[in-house]
Structures are given as C-alpha cells and as structure tokens.
C-alpha cells in the first residue's frame, strides 16, 4: 500500500496516573475512511487531539507522508493538511454563512492604504464551494444559526476542504443529528473520499460507521481493541467489539433480569 497521509506509531498519553492512550498505532491513506469507534472514555478524543496537534503524545511518534513530525499547534497540523472539524465548535451560529466559511482566511479588498473584508468575493467562494457539496445557498448573509445541524456540519467540512485539507478528522459529526440530517453529512464524507481525501470519522454510532468506513479501529480503555477491514465487518460483530463484547452481553443479561424482578415485584437492591 502507498504511504499513509498520517500515521500514529505506538502513541501513548498519560494524565498523571491515568493512562488515556497506550501504544496506539493507526494509519490513514488518501481516499480512505477510517472509522474510530469506542465508548465514552475509550480515548477517542485524546487520540484526535494528538492527531490534530492540540496535544502531544508522551510516547510514540506521528508521521505525515512517512516523515516524522512534531506538531506544536493545530495551525502546525493544518499547515500539513490535517483539518479537524469538532462536533459542536465547528461554526459560529451568530455569524453569516459566508463569514463563517471564510473565517481565518478572509479575502481582502484594498482601498488605498486600507484593507477591507471582501464580502462579495467571500460570498462567491462560499456559494461555489457549498454548491460542490450539494448545498444551495441563496442568502449568504443568513446567520449560520438558521441552518440545520447537518448543513452546519457540511459547511464546516466543506470549509476544511477548501482550506486545503488532505485529511479530515471529523469528531462525532453525526451524533447530535437525526437520521436525515446525518445522511447529509455521510453523503459528504463519501464524496470527500471520492475526491481522494483521507477521513478519520469518529463516532459511537455503528449505523453511521458501517456504510462509509473502509477500516474500523475500535478503542477500548485507551487501547486498540481491534482493527478490521470493511469485508470482515458486519453490524453484530462491530457492536460486539465496541461495547467490549462480553461486557455488553453481561450488561444485557443484567438488565433483563432487573426488568423481570421489577415485574414480579421483588425487592430491588
């Protein structure tokens, strides 16, 4: 296989006595969607913070295009084409669509010694880029807060792509969305892959991961519990791995027993 865009090699991260990540290795290639799955507290968010340059690993290294790197900030990571779209922080609801889209890379119109924000140009770019991912925007001055959740996520993804990202890290982009809204986002992920981008897709929803993932990395308690190719996966298997398999089955048994107890009016401890 070709050199991966980003590769984590035996990465560990500790917070005092807590082992947040231990010996994690993961690689993402161009045109590939890697789904990062795991329960709350499995280490997903720590891993993406490391991949996106927000935190540094205590052990292990990162490599971009096979070259070891040391990110000092998200800006650093971004300069190498790694863009992260966070679930809730992606966009600013009080600002207009075009301003959101061009945030941090505003086009400038010079007027004598003064430099103004080029609203028309920003609007044109935003309109075109959003159209590429299938969102028609008539009113670019509309506040982003008036868009649907799926559209907001799509806007954030489109923006990251426009900014030159080669690898998108999407942090729970669908978890707060309904079925139809999630579908919009998932469609964009597939399109991004088709354009040759690498995608790290973080979720704890198997239904969202399964249809788009090429590979699945399952984290459990800071360790890789398993890495599977598309072909070896089905929903049942994924579910089993995700919840920690046996643990989840035990939990199921417990809950059934509790329900039975309540039905028969037995004392509950």
């Amino acid at each position: 296989m070709a050199t991966p865009i980003i590769e984590a090699r035996s990465v560990s991260r500790y917070f005092g006595t807590v082992v947040a990540l231990k010996d994690i290795s993961i690689a993402v290639h161009a045109g590939e969607v890697v789904c990062l799955l795991g329960d709350n507290g499995a280490g997903k968010s720590t891993l993406i913070k490391i991949l996106s340059g927000l935190e540094r690993p205590d052990e292990g290294t990162l490599a971009i295009d096979g070259q070891p790197v040391n990110f000092r900030s998200p800006r650093d990571a971004f300069a190498r084409g790694i863009a992260t779209v966070y679930q809730d922080l992606a966009v600013l609801p009080q600002m207009s669509i075009s301003r959101n889209f061009m945030l941090g890379m505003e086009p400038i119109r010079k007027f004598g010694p003064f430099r103004f924000f080029d609203e028309a140009k920003a609007g044109a770019i935003a309109r075109e880029e959003l159209a590429k991912i299938g969102i028609t925007v008539n009113h670019l001055k509309q506040k982003v807060g008036t868009m649907s959740g799926g559209e907001r996520q799509s806007l954030a993804i489109a923006r990251a792509e426009y900014r030159g990202a080669r690898l998108l890290i999407l942090d729970e982009p669908t978890s707060a969305l309904g079925v139809n809204e999630a579908a919009i986002v998932l469609r964009h992920v597939i399109r991004a892959r088709a354009r040759g981008l690498g995608v790290v897709f973080i979720t704890h929803n198997v239904h969202h991961a399964l249809p788009i993932g090429d590979r699945f990395v399952i984290l459990n308690r800071g360790r890789v519990a398993g890495t599977f190719a598309r072909a070896e996966m089905d929903e049942a298997a994924l579910n089993r791995h995700m919840g920690g398999g046996a643990e989840f089955e035990a939990l199921q048994r417990d809950l059934v027993a509790l329900a039975d107890q309540l039905k028969t009016g037995a004392t509950v401890h």
Binding site: A131, T136, V137, S148, E151
Partner: peptide, 14 residues
C-alpha cells in the same frame, strides 16, 4: 452553479 437540492433549508426572511 446553483443546484436546487431538496434539503437546502435556508430561506430568505421577510
């Protein structure tokens, strides 16, 4: 350039 897709929900307010 403008593809009218069914899920576009931005509308102009009065």
């Amino acid at each position: 350039m403008t593809m009218a897709l069914p899920h576009s929900r931005t509308r102009e307010l009065p």
